[in-house]
């Protein structure tokens, strides 16, 4: 195996032995170190910090987002609560108003009813009073008339002969006819109630 490419190896001074695989040549070590150091520096100084920063930022953003979402949720819950409360208040308010309105309405109705009743009683009363007054007036005028009529009748009776029955009845009839005519003439305008 060591002399497979003898033509090539002649150019290289030394033949390649298997052990060379295990013992690094100086140039190998040097170039490996150069490459490794360059990679390490770039990764340590630039790439990894950059990704770390992005990761940190992302974590922060996610946490911030979560917190924000939480507060938003809390706010929403509070708003809902408030809304419910307001709704409740509005409902009670409405109920109260309705109650009040109902009470007021019934009060008004009652008032109107009492008023109407009052009116009715008053009207009735005035009517009664008027009737009473008219009755009184009638009775007063009747009483006055009856007195004069009685006296007139008496005088007429006295003036005529009281024995004669025919005459007597004639006088009374005449009196009544007189009275009737007088009544229709004089009392006719005053009303015929009686």
């Amino acid at each position: 195996m060591p002399t497979v490419h003898s033509a090539v190896l002649a150019a290289e001074d030394s033949a390649v032995e298997g052990i060379d695989l295990l013992i690094p040549a100086w140039y190998d070590i040097i170039w490996s170190s150069v490459v490794l150091v360059i990679i390490a520096i770039v990764f340590y100084k630039y790439i990894l910090p950059k990704f770390q920063a992005v990761l940190d930022e992302r974590t922060e953003k996610i946490e911030g987002g979560l917190a924000q979402a939480e507060t938003a949720q809390a706010e929403a819950a509070a708003a809902l609560e408030e809304y419910h409360q307001q709704l409740q208040e509005a409902r009670t308010e409405a109920a109260k108003i309705r109650e009040e309105a109902r009470a007021e309405g019934s009060a008004i109705v009652a008032e109107l009813r009492t008023k109407a009743q009052d009116d009715a009683t008053r009207i009735l009363e005035t009517a009664h009073r008027q009737v009473e007054a008219e009755r009184q007036q009638a009775s007063i005028s009747l009483r006055a008339d009856v007195g004069s009529l009685a006296t007139e009748l008496a005088s007429k009776i006295v003036g005529e002969s009281l024995e004669d029955h025919a005459r007597q009845s004639r006088v009374v009839d005449r009196f009544l006819a007189d009275l009737e005519s007088e009544n229709t003439a004089g009392v006719g305008s005053n009303g015929q109630e009686g």
């Binding site: 497979v4 490419h5 290289e12 390649v16 298997g18 100086w26 140039y27 040097i30």
Partner: peptide
């Protein structure tokens, strides 16, 4: 073969670089 891993130099032949 193993010589595959020891190709001839391109630059700086014979030096440690």
């Amino acid at each position: 073969s193993i010589t595959d891993f020891f190709p001839p130099a391109i630059f700086f032949e014979g030096t440690i670089f």
